[in-house]
């Protein structure tokens, strides 16, 4: 056999490993609201903690049930504990909600683009969150507060359906008590004893204390809420390229090969989930894109 016809044994295993989850143990389970919960995870192996940037996500695997993309909601400066907050709404997340301390979960990641926290240096930062959309923004808030003197004003505008749906309530109260961060919470509907604001989160934008000409806005929530938030921010004079949104799409691989997360020409898993608004503006206007 001529030697130049020999077929080398292909290193196919290398390709397969990118799809292999790393096992993590549930260290703590927290019921946040009626249908949302937080998992604090630690690696089962002795390897390095999973370092991530605010805004990134992981693919979380529940034994035999499936894998879902969930944003990371912990402190990027404390990567020793991997924190995920999610809502029990699908097949996988409902089973995930029954996991308890000591049980295992598979983790692939972190994937995706981060919030531009570093690039916001010297600017006011306006965070607009709707419902569970606060979870992927919390790492950005942690980072902003940890390096507080690098930024101008830090404003959090948060809207949920009802007072019972308010996520991270104790933390919100702590942040609210600080003098260097402005926290405004509103709910769509409420009964007594709620004495706070009622109405959609976009109504908070016109009066929020930030300088539109030197602000960076980070938005996460339902698409309709993000579109109207952008509308209000632009009305105040915030430039489109200083507005960032985080999109959600179906994802099976997280690495740009399964095709599910396509949004026009964009792969949300790879070029997102965080996008500068001009990059997605026209596509957001197309229904059923």
């Amino acid at each position: 056999m001529p030697s130049n016809l020999e077929v080398a044994a292909p290193p196919l295993e290398a390709a397969a490993t990118t799809m292999l989850p790393r096992l993590f143990r549930v260290q703590r389970y927290l019921q946040e609201t009626d249908d949302t919960f937080t998992l604090e995870l630690g690696p089962l192996d002795d390897g390095a903690p999973l370092a991530f940037a605010p805004g990134q996500f992981n693919m979380l695997y529940v034994f035999g049930v499936g894998e879902v993309p969930i944003s990371i909601s912990g402190d990027p400066d404390k990567p020793g504990v991997l924190v995920h907050t999610t809502r029990a709404v699908g097949t996988v997340t409902r089973v995930m909600a029954r996991l308890r301390r000591g049980e295992l979960i598979g983790v692939r990641g972190p994937y995706g683009t981060p919030w531009p926290v570093d690039q916001a240096e010297g600017n006011d930062v306006v965070i607009v969150a709707g419902g569970i959309g606060l979870a992927p923004l919390r790492p950005a808030l942690y980072r902003l507060l940890a390096q507080r003197d690098r930024f101008g004003k830090v404003v959090l505008l948060y809207g949920t359906r009802t007072p019972e749906d308010i996520l991270y309530r104790k933390e919100l109260e702590r942040w609210r008590a600080r003098f260097d961060v402005d926290v405004y919470v509103t709910v769509d509907r409420a009964i007594a004893p709620w004495r706070g604001s009622v109405g959609v989160v976009t109504h908070l934008i016109p009066k929020a204390p930030f300088d539109p000409l030197s602000s960076v806005a980070l938005i996460c929530g339902p698409e309709i809420m993000m579109r109207f938030s952008v509308f209000e921010l632009e009305k105040r004079g915030v430039a489109a390229d200083r507005i960032f949104v985080s999109l959600e799409r179906n994802m099976k691989c997280g690495v740009g090969t399964c095709g599910h997360c396509q949004f026009g020409p964009l792969f949300v898993c790879r070029e997102g989930p965080v996008f500068a608004y001009p990059r997605v503006r026209d596509w957001l206007a197309v229904r059923e894109l």
């Binding site: 077929v7 292909p10 196919l12 390709a15 690495v255 090969t257």
Partner: peptide, 15 residues
């Protein structure tokens, strides 16, 4: 071009 290239395809094609 996948973020974590699926090398399997290229390997199979080249061989």
């Amino acid at each position: 071009m996948a973020a974590h290239a699926d090398a399997g395809y290229g390997v199979r094609l080249r061989q």
